[in-house]
Simulated assay, not measured.
Amino acid sequence: MPSEDLELKLGLETTRQELAVAFGGPEAKKRASQPGIVPMRATNKLFVFSDPHKSKENGYNFDGWSEGDDLGPVFDYTGTGPIGHQKIDGLNGTLLEHEAQGLELFLFISDGYVKPGGAKKQRLVGQMVVDPINPFVERWDYDETGALRRVYVFRLRPVDLDQTDMRAEDAVQPAQKTETVPLPKAPAKPGVKSKKTEKHSKSQTTAVIVDGERLVQRREGQLVTAFEEHLAKAGHTFASFQITVEGEPGALTPDLYDETDHALYEAKGLTTRPNVRMAIGQLADYRRHLKNPRTLRVAVLLPSEPTADVKALLKAEGVHLVYRAETGFAGFPLPKVD
């Protein structure tokens, strides 16, 4: 099928074979049989295919529209790699850097079959862009061998909401049970190349993204990494958890758990009252799902010393304070439990 007969617009229902012939160039047949992330470099396109049924078989339980945020809706899309820890390279790297590589990203959802026994029907959701502020989150799930492994869930934003097929049935599915899974110590997070935010038209939800928000995200990550190094030098072991809640989509992941001190930390990239208040609420939510919550100490990790009244707020709520100082981290180690 020639490309001029297959328009990537709202309402399109097609097959991977048709897309490959229309946009795949000389290697069309190979393109049709690739995994869920398919570059069509001959036409500067990148197609990603979300298959709810196949995803569940491969241990992917995170695909779908999430709650989104102040910047608009977000579609969570699990990267490729069905066995073992996923990596940010290969096709996952192509998805992460699709804009830098000049590839327009289009999302499809598997939606039935063309006919009984025929090819899977692919419904176009719309043109998307990987969120430049927080392009992906780490999640943990079991692969088909039963091994706990890390997966990368990319956060895709619609380029034009008016040309996006958003359906309630495509939302992230709620968890079947409440479960707290201790996570193995993860390796250093892969670097995300910095790039300036492109300008978009008014219909594009990414237009309000600013570099300042992305900078706060990086500061928070750098703060946690620095504190992990501080803990290691002090002889402490640390990890985190993934908490799923029955009837709710997605997962909760605290920033850091100090196994040595049985202490849970929530980090913030800014030392402001709204950020501290948010951290207090998150810690209160997390601690309910961990073992021995009565003896668990909780602390807010900040990049600098807050005001006296914010300190008083933390003390009143029974939350410890640790912040970065010239010679290390003030407030660490936490006071011993009586």
Rank of each mutant, 00 (worst) to 15 (best):
E138D: 13
Q163G: 11
E144Y: 11
T145L: 15
M128H: 05
R157V: 15
D143K: 04
M128L: 05
P132C: 04
R150H: 05
R139K: 04
P135V: 03
V151H: 13
R157D: 07
G126I: 01
Y113W: 08
V151I: 15
K121W: 03
Q122S: 00
P116G: 00
V137G: 09
D141P: 03
V129T: 12
W140I: 05
Y113S: 03
V137S: 14
L148F: 08
L161I: 14
V151M: 15
D160M: 00
E138R: 02
L156S: 12
V159D: 07
V125R: 02
I133G: 03
M128Y: 09
V151F: 04
R149W: 07
G118T: 00
L156D: 13
G126M: 02
N134S: 11
Q122C: 00
D160N: 09
P116I: 01
A147T: 13
G146S: 12
V130A: 10
V125P: 00
L148C: 03
W140M: 08
A119Y: 11
V114H: 00
P135M: 06
L148D: 03
W140D: 06
D131R: 00
R155A: 08
R139L: 02
G118H: 10
Y142S: 12
A147Q: 15
Q122P: 01
F154M: 11
P135F: 11
G146C: 07
L124Q: 01
Q122I: 00
K115L: 03
V125T: 01
V130D: 11
V114I: 12
G117N: 03
V130Q: 13
L124T: 09
E144G: 01
Q122E: 07
R155I: 02
I133Q: 08
T145S: 15
L124C: 05
E144F: 11
L148R: 06
V151R: 15
E144P: 00
K120G: 04
Q127H: 08
Y142C: 05
L156I: 13
D143A: 10
E144A: 14
K115M: 04
K121M: 08
E138G: 02
V153G: 09
I133P: 02
P116N: 06
I133N: 11
R155F: 08
K115C: 00
F136K: 04
I133D: 13
D143C: 14
L124W: 09
V125A: 02
R149K: 15
D141F: 14
K120S: 12
T145G: 10
P132I: 05
R157W: 14
M128A: 07
F136L: 03
V151T: 13
W140L: 01
V129M: 07
R123H: 06
R149C: 15
L148V: 02
A119P: 12
E144S: 14
R150Y: 04
R139E: 09
P132F: 00
Y152G: 01
R139I: 00
Y142I: 03
D160K: 10
K120Y: 11
A147H: 14
M128I: 07
G146P: 04
D141G: 14
G146V: 05
N134R: 13
R123I: 01
T145N: 15
G117D: 09
K120L: 05
G146E: 10
N134L: 06
V159Q: 08
E138Y: 02
